[in-house]
């Protein structure tokens, strides 16, 4: 075998290896989605989207309360975490050399690593016990602790990409640093920051553990901040471990809806990213 064929063979071998790994990574994703669709799609009905659960034994009913609850809790969590996260991320990227910044960075990293069940326990101790009851507020705060570190780190990483000469150009116009930071650095990268926010939100939307003993769950549509509130993940969890066949079927449908809700959020975020990339391409070509 001469050198050329040997090199071609090696190339072919590693190329196949890469392709196989790519497929291996995709298989679980495909299986999960396919199985959830297979199990859940038959339960889709208007009832599912517009009705609350029926008592045990009666057929029908839906998860409108859990869908609304998930949206409510995620919105509440984002409302708390996104502003703080964006501000922290900006601080870390622009003024990230001091002692405070370094400890903040460590704290944020640790928070990323805290298991979500522990975050649930934390919110339980902090809110549920003093308020003497499960509440949407406790759930929202638990979710905000999931969202906060992701938003902070993604904002920091995005803003770190802003070249020094852009900041200097702003300063050279006689603008105070905070104006350069806010109007040029942050506002100029709002879309990218938003992408990080959406990723964090879609992560939080699928969390069960932080909500199990904070928002807990209920069986009707609620907007009460201080009452328990249902959510898709908890509802799916409760129904799937129930002994009733129709509840288990509804759990599959709930999983189906949740997956597509999150997929939808993610796709929206991709479009944001792509639009930015397309814009960059167009402007570079000219």
């Amino acid at each position: 075998m001469n050198y050329y064929t040997w090199r071609k063979a090696k190339n072919y071998f590693f190329h196949s290896l890469l392709s196989i790994s790519a497929v291996l990574v995709l298989i679980p994703l495909f299986l999960v989605v396919a199985y959830v669709v297979y199990k859940g799609i038959s339960g889709l009905s208007l009832d599912f989207f517009f009705n609350t659960p029926k008592p045990v034994g009666e057929v029908g009913g839906g998860m409108v309360h859990a869908i609304m609850g998930t949206l409510y809790l995620v919105a509440l969590g984002s409302l708390i975490a996104v502003p703080i996260g964006v501000v922290c991320g900006t601080f870390l990227s622009e003024f990230g050399d001091g002692k405070i910044a370094k400890s903040l960075r460590v704290a944020i990293d640790l928070l990323t690593g805290v298991p979500s069940i522990v975050i649930g326990i934390f919110a339980y101790i902090l809110i549920v016990i003093p308020f003497k009851g499960f509440s949407a507020l406790a759930g929202g705060i638990a979710l905000s602790l999931i969202i906060l570190p992701i938003v902070t780190r993604s904002t920091e990483e995005i803003l770190k990409l802003v070249p020094q000469h852009i900041k200097e150009a702003g300063l050279a116009l006689g603008l105070p640093r905070w104006k350069v930071t806010y109007f040029i650095v942050v506002k100029g990268n709002l879309k990218a920051i938003l992408t990080g926010v959406i990723l964090a939100i879609s992560r939080a939307a699928g969390e069960t553990a932080p909500l199990l003993f904070t928002a807990f769950g209920n069986r009707y549509v609620s907007t009460e901040l201080l009452s328990p509130m249902a959510s898709l993940p908890v509802q799916i969890y409760n129904y799937s471990i129930s002994p009733f066949d129709d509840w288990q079927a509804q759990a599959w449908t709930g999983a189906f809806v949740l997956i597509f809700l999150i997929l939808g959020i993610n796709l929206t975020c991709r479009t944001f990213l792509n639009r930015k990339k397309i814009l960059e391409k167009v402007t570079r070509q000219k």
Binding site: A169, F183, I184, G188
Partner: peptide, 27 residues
């Protein structure tokens, strides 16, 4: 001081997110 003594840099560096008009008057 920098409102009195302006600066143009080696590498052209318009603010990427801003239009031509916004770039001109941003200061």
């Amino acid at each position: 001081l920098r409102r009195q003594i302006g600066m143009v840099f080696q590498k052209p560096n318009p603010f990427p997110s801003m239009s031509i008009f916004e770039n001109t008057v941003i200061g």
